[in-house]
Design a protein around this nucleic acid. Sequence first.
DNA 1: TTCCTTGCAAAACTTTTGCATTAAA
DNA 2: TTTAATGCAAAAGTTTTGCAAGGAA
Lengths: 136, 136
Amino acid sequence: MTTTEIARRLEAHGILPTAQRVRIASVLLAMPQHLSAEQLLAQLKDGGGRVSKATVYNTLNLFASRGLIRPLSVDGTRAWFDSNVEAHYHFHDVESGALTDVAVPEVEFSRLPPPPEGMEVAGIDLVIRLRKTTRD
Amino acid sequence: MTTTEIARRLEAHGILPTAQRVRIASVLLAMPQHLSAEQLLAQLKDGGGRVSKATVYNTLNLFASRGLIRPLSVDGTRAWFDSNVEAHYHFHDVESGALTDVAVPEVEFSRLPPPPEGMEVAGIDLVIRLRKTTRD
DNA sequence: TTCCTTGCAAAACTTTTGCATTAAA
DNA sequence: TTTAATGCAAAAGTTTTGCAAGGAA
């Protein structure tokens, strides 16, 4: 994706495409991936630019609030962000922490509870925890 | 549940039933509930005893590692623990943060992906995010 | 006595915030 | 010129750790 395309995508989400935001978005959106704030910061610094930690955190929250990325709750100890906002689920290797996507057609719900009165479903997070097979 | 019953239950999980652990367990196991470390600490202090923050955190981790309680990833900003370790799922009100149980029979999977080679499913976390109904 | 647990404080880690500087409209 | 974004450092919130003191085996 070119810088211009990234900038257009930010604008489409109501985000002013500043230099740092475009740099952050181009790392995130380069491929579907799961990143923590510190991982993203490390990648940006490897890339040789200067982006402050505060900007990374603020930008991740901004992107998430505008629906450009999706926050993940898998860990409890730190926030993860998924650059793939299409509906999908996850495998989580509890030992290594690795996250893998599970496509929507791989899962079928034949029954789901109705939401409580006055509420509607905003989203479904499904995490399938994995461990090494124990052969005994 | 009596103190003796709690102590037996701790022992059954390989946990030495010290005074603090029994107090912590009796709050947790009084009913099926979702608590953060700070909430638990507050309840213990209301109860008039002296338990240190470190002991609460260490004990929660100990209990979770022995399968007496279950850690929940719903929040990203802090750890939650569920005193109900039976299989079940959750509603999560994203505005208030409230968690509600969803019983297993309320959800049916007619299709689930096979785990990757050499891996097996250790558990399934399902969180149904709820928001207020928007009538437009 | 020997080992494990507890409390306290300090440290570590993640995330947010205040404020002066810089960039964008 | 006026408003918004950035960087830095400090602050805030959560969780872990070191160590001396206390409790259990």
